[in-house]
Write a protein that binds this DNA or RNA. Structure first.
Length: 560
RNA sequence: UGGGGCGUAGUGCAAUGGCAGCACACCAGACUUUGGAUCUGUGGAUCUUGGUUCGAAUCCGAGCGCCCCAGCCA
């Protein structure tokens, strides 16, 4: 086990102690998703912890689908989940397991518990079971069926399996303690009748084990040492231990950690589903979604997500991490890996009056000024170019470094230009600019040493490629959309400007052949990636994340 | 009112009886052919209250606050 720079945490320490004391002599974890939805950034935390810890200790991590509820699960999700885990960079090798693989063993163990007098078939209706359970402050009552004979229980349980009873008619329950202060121990249901086709076992079964009965035993079968899970299961741990002890089988250790929450983000599967089904987003992989497939489409590199999870740390505190940290990690990675390119999102035509009409030249540009290994490229330049509308102000505010009447700026890797005229339409909108250029400043340097404050990105009009650019912003305008005020729901906090589609954007010709998934920095603007909707004659970019913009901050402060 | 868990800068995580530190965010400055990146610097925290101790974020008592548990969901 090589010493990594990853900071320690309480789970790592617990594992180290278990290894030291000999409680376990190896580390084997598992990531146990239920195939009933898509993975999101919250799952990424669990994945990184489960796979990451195993790796750190030279152990293994299994992928196990917790598929004990056929009503909610689907094969569609298992494929998506596998793809997302691989995308994050983790591999379970040949250890792809399913709780449903263990149904027969689980059934045999249930029979064993019945024989030991530790489980019984209950005929109470779901409503009655609830009534008999008691409340948080009052103990429950024992079911009248609680003390059936072993023979009767065996007979009934076998007939449950055989399909003799309709859904909900009976359940198998563990016989523990109806007056326990831990409600999970008040004779929890082990099996329920569900005449439903399972995506893997088909119609072989009509009784299905509950999570509490299936999970620990599945861990045991797989020889898991450390079963890491959400803090919500902490109160289930006595039950996890109870089944394993009652069965007298190999006993893994369950350790719980706090799940991830992000500001301006919703991570509940139910709400995410609502966003998709309500048409508030285009699908599970909408780039505004916190799903891994959404982030992938948005252009978030998996390395950035892993870095983020690492920085968040592992603890038991319930916390809400600032989404700015995630964005920082994304920028940090992309800054090192994304080639730079020029793209004009809101074009403003500029005519360089003293540049010859038919002339055209190729200017050399750096693909990454911070890393020479990215090489250089040639960018065509000509008399008519586009610059960003925001890069010109007829009446420049103080500290505005960009173009204005009479002002001189640098065109990145090009020439110094000076604005000499502003052309407007009858409504007073600026439609084009006339400038002059200084031929001595080719490449962006003035031989006489004069300086300009601003450097603008640009694209030659005649050579530009058209593109559609989708600008994404946070989906919610409330830092904690989940905790809505009275009378409101998370939907009331949807940001109406979370998607802005720009068409007619002008990008460097070298982007014409860009392929879906490729990431770039559009200089001075942000990181963008080529969207899946891109075809041979349609170029679509997604804005992954903006570059930090200190000018926007200055302006914002001035306007209030 | 039962049980379980958690309280450290704005946020997240460290400090495991010995100078409360790191990251992000924020603010100021330097540098800059990206108002990016980078670099430097400033401010800001132990829930409260008693106690033990030479010394407490840490140990003990009391209190307060927040989260979770009453699915035949996971």
């Amino acid at each position: 086990m090589s010493e990594t720079s990853v900071p320690s945490n309480f789970i790592r320490e617990a594992i180290e102690e278990d290894l030291r004391t000999g409680r376990y002599d190896r580390v084997h974890t598992r990531f146990p998703p239920e195939p009933n939805g898509y993975l999101h950034i919250g799952h990424a935390k669990a994945i990184c912890i489960d796979f990451g810890l195993a790796e750190a200790f030279g152990g293994k991590c299994n992928l196990r689908f917790d598929d004990t509820n056929p009503v909610k699960e689907d094969i569609e999700y298992v494929e998506a989940i596998k793809e997302d885990i691989h995308w994050l960079g983790f591999d379970w090798e040949e250890r792809e397991y399913y709780a449903s693989d263990y149904f027969e063993q689980l059934y045999q163990w249930a029979i064993e518990l019945i024989k030991k007098g530790k489980a019984y078939v209950d005929d109470l209706s779901p409503e009655e079971v609830r009534e008999y359970r008691g409340t948080l402050t009052e103990p429950g009552k024992e079911s009248p069926y609680r003390n059936r004979s072993v023979e009767e229980n065996l007979d009934l349980f076998q007939r449950m399996r055989a399909g003799e009873f309709p859904d909900g008619a009976r359940v198998l329950r563990a016989k523990i303690d109806m007056s326990s202060s831990n409600i999970n121990l008040r004779d929890p249901v082990m099996y329920r009748i569900l005449h439903s086709e399972h995506h893997r076992t088909g119609n072989k079964w009509c009784i299905y084990p509950m999570y509490d009965y299936a999970h620990g035993q599945s861990d045991s079968i797989e020889g898991i040492t450390h079963s890491l899970c959400d803090i919500a299961y902490e109160i289930h741990r006595p039950l996890y231990d109870w089944f394993l002890d009652a069965l007298e089988i190999y006993h893994p250790r369950q350790i719980e950690f706090a799940r991830l929450n992000l500001t301006y983000t919703i991570l509940s599967k139910r709400y995410l589903k609502q966003l998709v089904e309500g048409g508030y987003v285009s699908g599970w992989d909408d780039p505004r979604m916190p799903t891994l497939c959404g982030m992938r489409r948005r252009g978030y590199p998996p390395e950035a997500i892993r870095d983020f999870i690492e920085r968040v740390g592992v603890a038991k505190n319930e916390s809400i991490v600032d989404v700015a940290l995630l964005e920082h990690c994304v920028r940090d990675h992309l800054n090192k890996t994304a080639p730079r390119v020029m793209a004009v999102l809101n074009p403003l035509k500029v005519i360089i009056d003293n540049y010859p009409e038919e002339k055209e030249e190729q200017l050399e540009a750096l693909n990454n000024p911070e890393d020479a290994s990215f090489g250089t490229r040639l960018v065509p330049f000509s008399r008519e170019i586009y610059i960003e509308q925001d890069d010109f102000r007829e009446i420049p505010p103080p500290k505005y470094f960009r173009l204005a009447p009479g002002k001189e700026v640098r065109l990145r890797y090009g020439y110094f230009i000076k604005c000499v005229d502003v052309v407007k339409d009858p409504q007073g909108n600026i439609v084009e600019l006339h400038c002059t250029y200084d031929p001595e400043t080719r490449g962006g340097y003035a031989p006489d040493g004069r300086k300009v404050q601003g450097t603008l990105h640009w694209v030659s009009a005649a050579h530009a490629t058209d593109a559609e650019v989708r600008l994404y912003d946070r989906l919610f305008n409330h830092p904690d959309p989940d905790s809505a005020e009275e009378g409101k729901t998370f939907l009331d906090y949807l940001n109406p400007n979370s998607l802005k589609v720009l068409t007619g954007c002008k990008v460097e010709p070298c982007l014409a052949k860009a392929k879906p998934g490729q990431r770039f920095q559009f200089e001075r603007q942000g990181y963008f990636c080529v969207d899946l909707d891109t075809t041979d004659n349609r170029l679509v970019f997604n804005r992954t994340v903006e570059l930090r913009d200190s000018w926007a901050k200055i302006e914002q402060k001035k306007t209030g």
